[in-house]
Nucleic acid binder design. Structure first.
Length: 383
DNA sequence: AGACCTTTGAAGGAG
DNA sequence: CTCCTTCAAAGGTCT
């Protein structure tokens, strides 16, 4: 596919330090961190509000409108980042240059709900700042369309025109130390090794603890552990606030689809997205390079903005359910090779000749004999 | 309820 | 470096 000469944004994330993929356990810890840092965030918000009252800065407006709602897990680094961006903004204003407030009155990034978060409609109830509401289903950047000949000649105040300037922006792993403790009374602090509910008076009349978790002595130890762990997880899940999911920034084609979908639906009276997407894919290829370039540039801005808003975010963060399920499925198939026939079919073996006569199929493949690195006609035990 | 379909592009991991 | 996988959006359809 055609890419812009400016690199098409390849320089935007590839060289950044990215968060290492974390297991669910670590993510749970992150969730706890979310709750923990909310107070810090409140401080941050109030400081930003104060700043905006002084500066009437658009960047603080966007912080208030977008980040205050959902960035409960803003890390220290993010806070530092916000401060630096805010200071940068102030500097721009003090310089009295083209970035002065009002220079970009309609810049779509600044007064909109967060497009990267689900249910981020920017409802007035959750945001007392009067904001310009985007029409429903409208991506904030689509307001840049239709494009002028030079739609991106100006950069928003908080975005460096050249991303090579973003030397201070790194997506670094967050320091989780100090965030492991649960809120007072948190069930997560109860561990099996702590001697469960030491006194029978702690149990209710039904033999249940007030938390709803049965006394472990009621069931055999082994089953008890399993049940306990399951219940503990359930209770934890219920108590913990759901982690807001930051979506991936849209790529050029996605932005194009978002804009053109309604048009195609109207033209073709189709509703099925799969069919519509096929049409849109063909139309995308029919676009000229210049037309596509608009969307590539738009997507590049998207990634820039996303990186500014969520410096610690990684696309890996959203690798989850599907992948885990698939991995589990693969693991299942690796431990369960299936029937000999299936196994031979898997490796393209001849049903008649490509197997070990003495032991039949058992040593035919890596699944059935992990020590064998090749697939012999006669296995290593009988050769 | 949740997976699937269908498209392109970006990101990140594996080899 | 190349290849592969996953996820972004959308909404009807299927399991």
């Amino acid at each position: 596919m055609p890419q812009l000469g400016n690199g098409g944004g390849d320089d935007l994330g590839a060289n950044d330090e990215m968060i290492a993929f974390k297991d669910e356990g670590e993510q749970e810890e992150k969730i706890q961190e979310n709750a923990f840092t909310e107070r810090d965030l409140a401080d941050l918000k109030s400081s930003l509000v104060n700043e905006s009252e002084i500066n009437q800065s658009p960047i603080t407006a966007v912080r208030r409108g977008q980040q205050s709602e959902e960035r409960g897990y803003a890390s220290d680094k993010q806070r530092e980042h916000l401060d630096s961006v805010s200071k940068q903004q102030q500097q721009h204003q003090q310089d009295g240059g083209m970035y002065k407030t009002g220079a970009y009155p309609g810049y779509p990034f600044l007064m909109l709900p967060d497009p990267y978060l689900p249910n981020s409609s920017g409802s007035p109830s959750s945001n007392k700042v009067s904001v310009v509401q985007q029409s429903h289903g409208m991506h904030p950047l689509t307001s840049l369309l239709p494009y002028s000949n030079d739609p991106f000649s100006h950069s928003p105040p908080h975005l460096p025109t050249d991303m090579s300037q973003k030397t201070g922006v790194h997506r670094q792993p967050q320091d989780l130390s100090g965030y492991y403790s649960l809120p007072p009374g948190g069930v997560g602090q109860i561990t099996p090794s702590m001697g469960w509910f030491p006194h029978s008076l702690m149990l209710g009349p039904s033999g249940m603890h007030p938390t709803g978790i049965p006394h472990p002595a009621i069931v055999p130890l082994q089953a008890n552990r399993i049940k306990y762990n399951k219940l503990l997880q359930e209770v934890k899940r219920e108590k913990e606030p759901k982690k807001p999911v930051i979506k991936k920034p849209l790529n050029a084609f996605m932005l194009y689809m978002k804009e053109m979908r309604a048009k195609v639906i109207a033209e073709c009276t189709l509703k099925e997205s799969a069919a519509i997407n096929q049409i849109l894919g063909r139309r995308w290829h029919a676009l000229t390079r210049e037309e596509q370039a608009k969307y590539y540039e738009l997507a590049r801005k998207e990634r820039q903005l996303h990186m500014q808003l969520y410096p610690t975010w990684s696309a890996r963060d959203n690798y989850g359910k599907k992948k885990r399920r698939k991995r589990e499925k693969q693991q299942d198939s690796s431990t369960d090779p299936g029937s000999p026939k299936k196994c031979r079919a898997r490796f393209g073996l001849n049903q008649q000749t490509d197997w070990c006569g003495p032991c039949r199929w058992v040593h035919h493949c890596l699944y059935h004999s992990p020590t064998i690195t090749t697939i012999p006609a006669v296995c290593h035990l009988h050769s």
